[in-house]
Computed example of a mutant assay.
Amino acid sequence: MIRLGAGKRGTDGTPDGTGDGASTRASGPTADRTPDGPGGGPAGRDGGLRGRDRRAAERGGGSRGTDRRSGGRDDGRSGPSGQRQKPRSLLTRGSPTVRLTGRGVLQVNLNWPPGHDVDLDLGCLIEFTDGGQAVVQALGDAYGSLTSWPYAALDQDDRTGAASDGETLRVSMEHRARFRRLLIYAYVYEGAVDFRRLGATAEITGPDRSGGSHRILLDDSPPGAVACAIALVAAERDGLAMRREVRWFTGSQELSPQEQIDHAYGYGMTWVSMTKPPR
């Protein structure tokens, strides 16, 4: 069943996946309608490419986040352009904000140590200046696109934690004038009852790589918390302002984690239950 939000262009419906070892419902998009494009279709389709083919086309260049096998080492070495990068900063409750400038690609990487055999999902709720909305996440095959609406794309779905680079969301800053706000979130699909002891970290790298990257630790989960609103990104005159949120949600039989996050931040989307194929 597909349910689209009435009266909201670009609204994605979204699904439910109850995972083994998880106590939550999960929601994921079932259909897209673009604010400036010709109609829509089932989520997970974009320009005729699907799944890995599309993700490979959208992946582009640049760093894909901290490699778990490297131990997260950051020595300030030069990037591809030869420009020396600043070391990572840590966003905390006492220092929660950072300004992002430039016109390249904003990257958000979700990473967690191997060995937990847990499926964590990275996602993003997007609100556009024209009132359109979109969801980018693996559930529902809503991987998005960097080169067309919604100008944000997820690279892969790490189902077990085995991928050394986790999951990375990329947002095109070339289209930053279209964005009103983006909410970055993560949730447990299956394999754990909450975020405790998972050691998950979000790392945000702006398009101006000389500004370094910014880490947000997801290490203060209360018992039963299966979802986290990680960061809120809002448009400014010359760039984007990002604020650490780290707001935890427990999920329930009535509302999926995505629905709880949506309600808390006033997006007002319509969501539909959905599950992933078995691992």
Rank of each mutant, 00 (worst) to 15 (best):
A31E: 11
Y185D: 02
L122D: 01
L49Y: 13
G48Y: 06
V233N: 00
A225W: 01
V136Y: 04
R84N: 10
D165A: 13
T66D: 15
D262E: 11
Y185W: 12
A56V: 07
S221L: 02
E236D: 11
V233W: 01
V226T: 14
R181I: 05
Y267L: 04
K8R: 14
G7K: 05
H263P: 03
V246W: 05
G21N: 13
F128K: 12
G140C: 03
G48R: 09
G131M: 01
R243P: 09
W248H: 10
V171S: 03
D121I: 09
I2T: 11
D262Q: 01
G94I: 04
T92Y: 07
T18W: 05
R73N: 14
D119Y: 13
G62E: 09
S221F: 00
T14Q: 14
S256V: 02
Q107K: 11
G123V: 04
A186I: 11
S63F: 05
E254T: 09
G7N: 14
V188C: 10
R279Y: 12
T205Q: 11
F195R: 03
A186P: 05
L217V: 09
T97A: 15
A26E: 10
G17T: 07
E190V: 02
S213H: 11
P15Q: 12
M242T: 08
R178Q: 14
R247L: 13
G51H: 13
M1L: 10
R9A: 13
G10H: 06
V246S: 06
L232N: 06
G251S: 15
A234M: 12
R84H: 11
S256D: 06
A264G: 08
G212A: 08
Q85R: 15
Q156W: 09
L120R: 00
L182H: 07
V136N: 00
D130T: 05
A186N: 04
D194P: 02
D141Y: 10
D53P: 02
L100W: 08
G47I: 03
R180E: 12
L198Q: 07
A229G: 09
G28I: 01
V188L: 10
S145A: 13
R180D: 15
F179S: 06
S27M: 06
E203W: 07
L4P: 00
R25W: 05
G104T: 04
L120M: 00
Y187V: 02
R73W: 14
M242C: 15
V171K: 00
G104L: 01
G191T: 04
K276R: 11
G40H: 09
R68P: 07
I261E: 07
R99S: 15
D74K: 06
G266M: 02
D158I: 04
L218W: 09
A227G: 15
D119I: 01
A202H: 02
V246T: 08
S273L: 04
A241D: 10
G94R: 14
L100E: 00
G65E: 05
R50G: 08
I204T: 02
S78T: 14
R247T: 11
A234K: 14
A264Y: 05
A26T: 14
V193A: 13
S213A: 15
S27I: 03
P87N: 01
R54C: 02
R247S: 07
K8G: 09
G115C: 04
R54H: 15
G161S: 08
D158Q: 10
G104Y: 03
G47F: 14
S210C: 10
V171T: 06
T97W: 08
D219F: 03
D157C: 03
A163M: 08
